[in-house]
């Protein structure tokens, strides 16, 4: 759930940045982290074709996800 995690972290970062009693260094570190999260969230949306897979379970209970259609 990388996008959801990223967005949750970003909201946290924004909330912390909103508090004024934050050292400048800490604020800038949070800002940098936010930019990194934004990049990773953006990357998680990059897929252009919806992937259709099928769950398969081997006899030993190990799961595998295969492409359903070419």
């Amino acid at each position: 759930m990388s996008f959801e995690k990223s967005m949750a972290r970003l909201e946290e970062i924004a909330a912390r940045l909103e508090s004024e009693d934050l050292e400048l260094d800490a604020a800038l570190a949070l800002f940098e982290e936010g930019i990194t999260e934004l990049r990773s969230a953006s990357a998680s949306l990059a897929q252009a074709e919806a992937r259709l897979k099928q769950l398969r379970e081997a006899a030993d209970g190990v799961f595998r996800v295969d492409d359903l259609r070419a």
């Binding site: 909201e11 924004a14 940045l17 909103e18 604020a27 800038l28 949070l30 800002f31 969230a41």
Partner: peptide, 18 residues
């Protein structure tokens, strides 16, 4: 995401201003 990015920039900017 765009809104969050703007918000982060503004908030960080405020810290710098302060």
């Amino acid at each position: 995401m765009r809104i969050v990015a703007t918000m982060l920039t503004e908030l960080a900017g405020e810290h710098v201003m302060r």
